[in-house]
C-alpha cells in the first residue's frame, strides 16, 4: 500500500497497482529508500498541488483502468481516438473539476487522463466564438482585436 498526502493534508491509502498508474509515483516508489529516513509507508508521498477531492477522483479513474497495460499506447496520444463511455461520464460529471483533473494528472504524469481531460475541455469550447469562450470560462478579455 502507498500513502498519498494531499495539499489539504489528507492521508489517502492506495493499493500499489492503482498508485502506479501515475508516472510520478511510479518513479518515486522505484527510487532507492534509506531506512534511516523512517518507514516509507508511514512517511507517505506528498502531493502538494493535488487536493484530496481531486486525488480521490483521479484514483477512481486509476482504479477503473488498473488492468490496462502500460504499452506503447499508454504514453502516446491518439488525437482521433474515441472516448470510452465510462471515461466520458467520468470527465463530464463536473466541468469545473475537469480543469483541476487535467492539472493534477499532468503533475502526476497520467498521460491518458491528461488527454481525456484536455479533450473534455476542448469539447466545451469547440465551435464557440471569442465572446462565448470568455463568457463560458469567465476569462477577462484584456484587449480589443
Amino acid at each position: 500500500m502507498v500513502v498519498l498526502i494531499t495539499s489539504d493534508d489528507e492521508r489517502i491509502v492506495v493499493e500499489d497497482d492503482i498508485a502506479k498508474r501515475s508516472g510520478l509515483i511510479r518513479d518515486l516508489l522505484a527510487a532507492p529508500w534509506d531506512p534511516k529516513d523512517g518507514d516509507r509507508e508511514y512517511m507517505g508521498i506528498e502531493l502538494p498541488i493535488v487536493s484530496s477531492d481531486v486525488l480521490k477522483k483521479i484514483l477512481e479513474y486509476c482504479e477503473h483502468h488498473k488492468e490496462e497495460p502500460f504499452d506503447d499506447t499508454y504514453e502516446s496520444e491518439d488525437m482521433f481516438a474515441d472516448i470510452d463511455e465510462w471515461d466520458l461520464n467520468f470527465i463530464t460529471a463536473d466541468p469545473h473539476m475537469a480543469f483541476e483533473i487535467v492539472l493534477a494528472a499532468n503533475y502526476l504524469e497520467i498521460p491518458p487522463l491528461v488527454s481525456l481531460g484536455s479533450k473534455a475541455v476542448a469539447n466545451m469550447m469547440r465551435g464557440k466564438d471569442a465572446e462565448e469562450i470568455c463568457d463560458m470560462f469567465n476569462i477577462e478579455k484584456d484587449f480589443e482585436p
Binding site: M79, H96, F99, N106, V114, K119, V121, N123
Partner: peptide
C-alpha cells in the same frame, strides 16, 4: 478563471483537440 490556471503546454494541447 479555471482555464487560465492551466500551464501553456496543456492549453496548447486543448487548442489542438478543439481544432482537430
Amino acid at each position: 478563471a479555471h482555464i487560465q490556471t492551466l500551464p501553456t503546454e496543456l492549453l496548447i494541447r486543448i487548442f489542438c483537440f478543439a481544432i482537430w
